[in-house]
Simulated assay, not measured.
Amino acid sequence: MSSAAEWRTLIDAVNGLPEGAPAAALATLIRTRGSTFRRAGTRMLVHADGRVVCELSGGCPQRDIVERARAVIRDGRPLQVTYNAESGLDVLMEMGCGGELEVLIEPIERTSAMPWLAPLDACLRERRPATLATWFAHDGVTMAPRRALADGTQVDTPACDALRTALARPRPDRATVVAVPGTDGRDEVLLEPVQPPHALVVIGSNATSRALLRLAGALGWQTTLVDNDPRRLDVSDLPARPATCCAEPARLCETVAFDLQTSVMVVTHSLARDTAYLRALEDVPLAYVGALSSRERAARLLDELEAPEWALHAPAGLDIGANTPEEIALAIVAEILAVQRARAGGPLRVKAGTIHA
Rank of each mutant, 00 (worst) to 15 (best):
G76E: 13
E94G: 15
V52N: 00
L301M: 08
D274W: 02
D187A: 08
A5R: 00
R341F: 13
A48S: 07
H138Y: 10
M114R: 14
R128G: 02
A334K: 03
R146D: 05
I73T: 09
R210G: 08
I336Y: 06
L89C: 05
S112Q: 10
P22S: 12
A40N: 02
A40S: 06
P181Y: 03
H356Y: 14
L271Y: 05
F258C: 07
G346F: 13
G96C: 11
T262W: 03
R341S: 12
L79C: 15
L281D: 02
G345D: 09
S205R: 06
L260Q: 14
A24Y: 00
A291H: 05
L330H: 01
A314H: 03
H356F: 14
A218V: 14
N84I: 02
S112K: 10
S293V: 11
A298H: 11
R8I: 01
Q195C: 12
A85M: 06
V235H: 05
M95Q: 13
D234E: 15
R77S: 15
P170A: 06
P145G: 05
G140K: 03
P107V: 04
S2G: 01
R68G: 12
D121E: 14
P115V: 02
L92V: 11
A240H: 13
A287W: 08
A211V: 11
R231G: 14
I30M: 01
R279D: 07
L56P: 01
E335S: 05
R300I: 14
L215G: 07
P325G: 05
C245M: 05
D259C: 09
L302C: 13
L120C: 01
A21I: 13
R110F: 12
A25W: 04
L301S: 08
T111M: 14
D303H: 14
F136S: 05
V46W: 01
G20Y: 09
A207C: 12
E67N: 11
R214Q: 15
D234G: 13
S209V: 06
L212W: 07
V180C: 00
P172Y: 10
R273V: 06
V264L: 02
Q154R: 12
E106S: 12
D259W: 06
